[in-house]
Design a protein around this nucleic acid. Structure first.
Length: 256
DNA sequence: GCGACAG
DNA sequence: ATCTTGTCGC
Protein backbone atom coordinates (compact mmCIF):
# COMPACT_ATOMS: atom_id res chain seq x y z
CA UNK A 1 0.00 0.00 0.00
CA UNK A 2 2.16 2.82 1.26
CA UNK A 3 5.43 3.10 -0.56
CA UNK A 4 7.39 3.74 2.57
CA UNK A 5 5.95 0.85 4.44
CA UNK A 6 4.05 2.67 7.16
CA UNK A 7 0.63 4.22 7.14
CA UNK A 8 -0.02 7.88 6.63
CA UNK A 9 0.98 10.13 9.44
CA UNK A 10 -1.39 12.97 10.30
CA UNK A 11 -0.59 16.15 8.42
CA UNK A 12 -0.84 18.20 11.58
CA UNK A 13 0.58 17.92 15.06
CA UNK A 14 -2.39 17.26 17.37
CA UNK A 15 -0.38 18.87 20.14
CA UNK A 16 0.04 22.22 18.37
CA UNK A 17 -1.51 24.81 20.67
CA UNK A 18 -2.92 26.79 17.76
CA UNK A 19 -5.27 23.88 17.09
CA UNK A 20 -6.84 24.22 20.54
CA UNK A 21 -8.18 27.73 20.96
CA UNK A 22 -9.90 28.80 24.13
CA UNK A 23 -12.66 30.89 22.62
CA UNK A 24 -15.52 29.86 20.27
CA UNK A 25 -14.71 32.30 17.49
CA UNK A 26 -11.16 31.03 17.16
CA UNK A 27 -12.39 27.44 17.35
CA UNK A 28 -14.68 28.01 14.38
CA UNK A 29 -11.73 29.45 12.48
CA UNK A 30 -9.78 26.25 13.16
CA UNK A 31 -12.67 24.20 11.82
CA UNK A 32 -12.79 26.26 8.65
CA UNK A 33 -9.12 25.52 8.20
CA UNK A 34 -9.33 21.77 8.92
CA UNK A 35 -12.42 21.09 6.83
CA UNK A 36 -10.27 21.22 3.72
CA UNK A 37 -8.27 18.25 4.94
CA UNK A 38 -11.24 15.91 5.28
CA UNK A 39 -11.28 13.11 2.71
CA UNK A 40 -14.72 11.80 1.86
CA UNK A 41 -13.66 8.97 -0.43
CA UNK A 42 -12.72 5.43 0.55
CA UNK A 43 -9.10 5.18 1.54
CA UNK A 44 -8.81 2.28 3.94
CA UNK A 45 -7.73 -1.33 3.73
CA UNK A 46 -9.18 -4.55 5.15
CA UNK A 47 -10.93 -3.85 8.43
CA UNK A 48 -9.64 -6.39 10.92
CA UNK A 49 -9.68 -4.26 14.02
CA UNK A 50 -12.25 -1.57 14.77
CA UNK A 51 -11.93 1.04 17.48
CA UNK A 52 -14.62 3.19 19.05
CA UNK A 53 -14.34 6.36 21.12
CA UNK A 54 -16.66 7.87 23.69
CA UNK A 55 -16.41 10.51 26.41
CA UNK A 56 -18.01 11.10 29.76
CA UNK A 57 -17.72 13.64 32.53
CA UNK A 58 -17.20 13.70 36.25
CA UNK A 59 -20.14 15.17 38.15
CA UNK A 60 -18.69 18.67 38.18
CA UNK A 61 -17.52 18.64 34.54
CA UNK A 62 -13.99 19.54 35.60
CA UNK A 63 -12.55 16.37 34.12
CA UNK A 64 -13.22 14.64 30.82
CA UNK A 65 -12.93 10.87 30.69
CA UNK A 66 -12.43 9.26 27.31
CA UNK A 67 -12.61 5.58 26.49
CA UNK A 68 -11.14 3.83 23.49
CA UNK A 69 -11.90 0.22 22.75
CA UNK A 70 -10.44 -2.09 20.12
CA UNK A 71 -12.59 -4.90 18.79
CA UNK A 72 -12.02 -7.80 16.46
CA UNK A 73 -14.10 -6.81 13.43
CA UNK A 74 -14.86 -10.43 12.67
CA UNK A 75 -16.81 -11.19 15.84
CA UNK A 76 -17.03 -7.87 17.65
CA UNK A 77 -15.14 -9.21 20.67
CA UNK A 78 -13.15 -6.84 22.84
CA UNK A 79 -9.39 -6.97 22.34
CA UNK A 80 -8.20 -3.96 24.32
CA UNK A 81 -9.53 -0.88 26.06
CA UNK A 82 -8.14 2.31 27.52
CA UNK A 83 -9.69 4.88 29.82
CA UNK A 84 -8.00 8.23 30.34
CA UNK A 85 -8.90 11.56 31.87
CA UNK A 86 -7.88 15.12 31.28
CA UNK A 87 -8.91 18.48 32.71
CA UNK A 88 -11.91 19.80 30.73
CA UNK A 89 -10.84 23.03 29.07
CA UNK A 90 -13.62 23.96 26.71
CA UNK A 91 -17.36 24.36 27.36
CA UNK A 92 -19.99 22.44 25.50
CA UNK A 93 -21.04 24.58 22.57
CA UNK A 94 -23.18 23.04 19.82
CA UNK A 95 -20.93 22.67 16.79
CA UNK A 96 -17.73 22.87 18.81
CA UNK A 97 -17.86 19.54 20.63
CA UNK A 98 -14.42 18.56 19.30
CA UNK A 99 -12.61 21.19 21.30
CA UNK A 100 -14.07 19.71 24.45
CA UNK A 101 -13.65 15.99 23.80
CA UNK A 102 -11.03 15.32 21.13
CA UNK A 103 -7.94 15.97 23.27
CA UNK A 104 -8.92 13.23 25.70
CA UNK A 105 -10.07 10.97 22.88
CA UNK A 106 -6.72 11.16 21.10
CA UNK A 107 -5.00 10.27 24.35
CA UNK A 108 -7.20 7.24 24.83
CA UNK A 109 -6.58 6.20 21.24
CA UNK A 110 -2.84 6.39 21.83
CA UNK A 111 -3.24 4.36 25.00
CA UNK A 112 -4.56 1.46 22.98
CA UNK A 113 -1.03 1.01 21.75
CA UNK A 114 -2.24 -0.34 18.44
CA UNK A 115 -3.53 1.43 15.34
CA UNK A 116 -7.05 0.31 14.40
CA UNK A 117 -8.12 -0.06 10.79
CA UNK A 118 -11.23 2.02 11.39
CA UNK A 119 -12.59 4.24 14.15
CA UNK A 120 -16.23 4.81 15.06
CA UNK A 121 -16.83 8.03 16.96
CA UNK A 122 -19.77 8.98 19.15
CA UNK A 123 -21.08 12.09 17.38
CA UNK A 124 -21.35 13.39 13.82
CA UNK A 125 -18.75 13.52 11.10
CA UNK A 126 -19.59 15.66 8.08
CA UNK A 127 -23.16 16.13 9.29
CA UNK A 128 -21.96 19.36 10.84
CA UNK A 129 -22.54 23.06 10.02
CA UNK A 130 -18.96 23.41 8.78
CA UNK A 131 -18.51 19.74 7.81
CA UNK A 132 -16.09 19.07 10.62
CA UNK A 133 -17.95 17.17 13.29
CA UNK A 134 -16.02 15.34 15.99
CA UNK A 135 -15.59 12.19 13.88
CA UNK A 136 -14.00 14.14 11.03
CA UNK A 137 -11.87 16.10 13.47
CA UNK A 138 -10.51 12.89 15.01
CA UNK A 139 -9.91 11.51 11.54
CA UNK A 140 -7.92 14.48 10.30
CA UNK A 141 -5.79 14.69 13.43
CA UNK A 142 -5.13 10.96 13.68
CA UNK A 143 -4.89 10.13 10.01
CA UNK A 144 -7.24 7.21 10.60
CA UNK A 145 -10.42 6.31 8.70
CA UNK A 146 -13.39 7.39 10.84
CA UNK A 147 -17.18 7.23 10.86
CA UNK A 148 -19.49 9.34 12.97
CA UNK A 149 -22.60 7.89 14.59
CA UNK A 150 -24.85 10.43 16.25
CA UNK A 151 -27.91 9.72 18.37
CA UNK A 152 -29.58 13.06 17.72
CA UNK A 153 -29.61 15.73 15.04
CA UNK A 154 -27.19 18.65 14.95
CA UNK A 155 -28.06 20.13 11.57
CA UNK A 156 -29.83 19.23 8.36
CA UNK A 157 -33.25 17.91 7.42
CA UNK A 158 -34.60 14.51 6.50
CA UNK A 159 -37.69 12.50 5.75
CA UNK A 160 -38.04 9.74 8.36
CA UNK A 161 -36.72 6.44 7.02
CA UNK A 162 -38.94 3.34 6.85
CA UNK A 163 -39.78 1.52 10.10
CA UNK A 164 -37.56 -1.48 9.45
CA UNK A 165 -33.96 -2.14 10.43
CA UNK A 166 -31.80 -1.13 7.50
CA UNK A 167 -34.18 1.50 6.17
CA UNK A 168 -32.49 4.80 5.47
CA UNK A 169 -32.92 8.28 4.10
CA UNK A 170 -30.46 11.05 3.23
CA UNK A 171 -29.65 13.79 5.70
CA UNK A 172 -29.45 17.07 3.82
CA UNK A 173 -27.97 20.40 4.84
CA UNK A 174 -27.76 23.35 2.48
CA UNK A 175 -28.62 21.22 -0.54
CA UNK A 176 -25.87 18.76 0.23
CA UNK A 177 -26.12 15.17 1.45
CA UNK A 178 -24.14 15.22 4.68
CA UNK A 179 -25.14 11.89 6.17
CA UNK A 180 -27.62 9.04 6.36
CA UNK A 181 -30.49 8.61 8.79
CA UNK A 182 -30.37 4.90 9.51
CA UNK A 183 -32.94 2.71 11.23
CA UNK A 184 -30.84 0.24 13.19
CA UNK A 185 -33.76 -1.52 14.92
CA UNK A 186 -37.36 -2.03 13.93
CA UNK A 187 -39.54 0.73 15.29
CA UNK A 188 -36.72 2.43 17.19
CA UNK A 189 -35.55 5.98 16.58
CA UNK A 190 -32.85 6.03 13.88
CA UNK A 191 -29.22 7.08 14.25
CA UNK A 192 -27.28 9.53 12.10
CA UNK A 193 -24.35 8.06 10.22
CA UNK A 194 -21.91 10.36 8.48
CA UNK A 195 -18.49 10.16 6.94
CA UNK A 196 -15.71 11.05 9.28
CA UNK A 197 -12.56 10.79 7.20
CA UNK A 198 -11.36 8.51 4.42
CA UNK A 199 -14.62 6.54 4.32
CA UNK A 200 -17.32 7.25 1.73
CA UNK A 201 -20.86 7.79 2.92
CA UNK A 202 -21.93 4.54 1.24
CA UNK A 203 -19.17 2.54 2.91
CA UNK A 204 -19.90 4.18 6.24
CA UNK A 205 -23.47 2.94 6.19
CA UNK A 206 -22.45 -0.52 5.01
CA UNK A 207 -19.80 -0.82 7.70
CA UNK A 208 -22.09 0.37 10.48
CA UNK A 209 -24.80 -2.06 9.38
CA UNK A 210 -22.23 -4.81 9.68
CA UNK A 211 -21.39 -3.81 13.23
CA UNK A 212 -24.92 -3.93 14.55
CA UNK A 213 -25.92 -6.38 17.20
CA UNK A 214 -29.32 -6.47 18.82
CA UNK A 215 -29.27 -2.86 19.90
CA UNK A 216 -29.80 0.62 18.49
CA UNK A 217 -26.12 1.51 18.48
CA UNK A 218 -23.31 -0.42 16.78
CA UNK A 219 -21.37 -2.77 19.07
CA UNK A 220 -18.11 -0.79 19.14
CA UNK A 221 -19.98 2.29 20.32
CA UNK A 222 -21.85 0.39 22.99
CA UNK A 223 -18.68 -1.16 24.36
CA UNK A 224 -16.88 2.18 24.39
CA UNK A 225 -19.81 3.72 26.24
CA UNK A 226 -19.75 0.93 28.82
CA UNK A 227 -16.03 1.40 29.40
CA UNK A 228 -16.24 5.17 29.65
CA UNK A 229 -18.90 4.79 32.32
CA UNK A 230 -16.38 2.97 34.47
CA UNK A 231 -14.66 6.19 35.44
CA UNK A 232 -14.39 7.13 39.12
CA UNK A 233 -17.43 9.09 40.38
CA UNK A 234 -17.99 12.50 41.82
CA UNK A 235 -16.07 15.78 41.80
CA UNK A 236 -12.41 15.10 41.38
CA UNK A 237 -10.56 15.07 44.64
CA UNK A 238 -7.44 17.27 44.75
CA UNK A 239 -5.57 15.82 41.83
CA UNK A 240 -2.20 17.27 40.97
CA UNK A 241 -2.35 19.62 38.02
CA UNK A 242 -0.85 18.45 34.78
CA UNK A 243 0.67 21.42 33.12
CA UNK A 244 2.85 19.75 30.52
CA UNK A 245 0.25 17.92 28.49
CA UNK A 246 0.21 14.90 30.71
CA UNK A 247 -2.26 12.13 30.06
CA UNK A 248 -3.73 12.88 33.43
CA UNK A 249 -4.50 9.35 34.36
CA UNK A 250 -5.07 6.06 32.70
CA UNK A 251 -6.34 2.63 33.52
CA UNK A 252 -7.90 -0.48 32.13
CA UNK A 253 -5.35 -1.44 29.58
CA UNK A 254 -5.13 -5.02 28.50
CA UNK A 255 -2.75 -6.69 26.18
CA UNK A 256 -2.04 -9.93 24.42
C1' DG B 1 -34.56 39.22 14.48
C1' DC B 2 -35.99 34.16 15.73
C1' DG B 3 -35.39 29.31 16.39
C1' DA B 4 -32.13 25.19 16.58
C1' DC B 5 -28.45 23.29 18.77
C1' DA B 6 -23.84 16.34 18.58
C1' DG B 7 -22.07 15.07 23.74
C1' DA C 1 -22.91 14.59 28.98
C1' DT C 2 -25.42 14.48 33.87
C1' DC C 3 -29.32 14.51 37.41
C1' DT C 4 -33.20 10.69 38.35
C1' DT C 5 -38.23 6.20 39.65
C1' DG C 6 -40.91 3.69 38.03
C1' DT C 7 -42.72 1.32 34.24
C1' DC C 8 -43.88 -1.15 29.94
C1' DG C 9 -42.37 -5.00 26.96
C1' DC C 10 -39.67 -8.90 24.96
Amino acid sequence: MDLDGHHDAPVLDPMASELWPTDPAAARAVQERLRGLVERDDRFGPVHRVAALDAHYAADNSVTWAAAVLLDAADMTLLRSALVCKPTRFPYVPGLLSFREVPAMLDSLAMLGERPDLVVVDGHGTAHPRRLGIASHVGVLSGLPTIGVGKSLLCGRFVPPGPTRGDQSPLIHRHEVVGTVLRTRDGISPVFVSTGHRVSQESAVRLILGMLGRYRLPEPTRIADAVSRMHPPGPKAPQAERTAGGTGRSALSQSD
